[in-house]
Design a protein around this nucleic acid. Structure first.
Length: 199
DNA sequence: CTAACGATTCGCT
DNA sequence: GCGAATCGTTAGT
């Protein structure tokens, strides 16, 4: 067990956290069943100057309240009435930043992940959890996990020896946030190129 | 109370 | 590539 410490999440630079999370392992324990995968795609959201962020301009609602807590908590919300999206809350209390996990490469209890996704082994591992709504299904994350402490034993992230170099990263604008006007162009999406080929 | 809207995914063309 | 599915949250009446 090698959980990321609180200090990792309290980094004031959410874009740096999004980049640093690549190659770490997102783990869950659901009803005693453990599963997990390498994080291969992330996006940063900044509360103070980012129109794409749910907490833009100090906006505070019941749903996004946990974004204002100290870093190291989960923020999970329902998108399109269908999909649970998992975020890592970062920065210190009062500064509402978060990293959306958009893609994971299964590595722990892969059989269970296939079962939860309802697919056969014909689907390649790299395609199993390659979307923010897919990885929550595969790892058993639901909206009731929102505000969970990431240092607990339900959802957490483990450090690894995997080091993703800049040239292994694809850096692009974020997906699905056209409404954010000029902020839609910020290069705050990070994807590991061909993670399948690396490990 | 009502209505509009998603930080998406899947299936069909 | 396009459109439907689907419902909690949000803001406004």
């Amino acid at each position: 067990m090698n959980k990321l410490p609180l200090s990792f999440y309290q980094n004031p630079d959410v874009v740096d956290v999004a980049r640093s999370l690549l190659g770490k392992i997102l783990m869950t324990q659901i009803d005693g069943v453990i599963s997990g995968g390498y994080i291969v795609e992330t996006e940063a959201y900044c509360g103070r100057n980012d129109k794409a962020c749910h907490a833009y301009n100090g906006k505070r609602t019941k749903r996004n309240e946990v974004m204002y807590a100290e870093g190291g908590k989960a923020y999970v919300y329902l998108c399109y009435g269908i999909h649970s999206l998992f975020n890592v809350v970062t920065n210190v209390e009062g500064l509402a930043d978060a990293v959306l996990i958009r893609g994971v490469y299964p590595c722990v209890n892969v059989e269970e992940i296939y079962a939860r996704r309802g697919t056969t082994r014909k689907v390649k591992k790299a395609k199993l959890l390659d979307g923010p709504g897919k990885l929550t299904v595969g790892l058993g994350i639901e909206t009731n996990h929102s505000a969970e402490n990431l240092l607990g034993d339900s959802v957490w992230i483990e450090n690894t020896n995997v080091k993703i170099k800049n040239e292994q990263m694809l850096i692009t604008p974020r997906i699905g946030i056209d409404y954010a006007e000029e902020d839609a162009l910020l290069p705050w999406r990070f994807v590991v190129k061909d993670f399948d080929g690396l490990y």
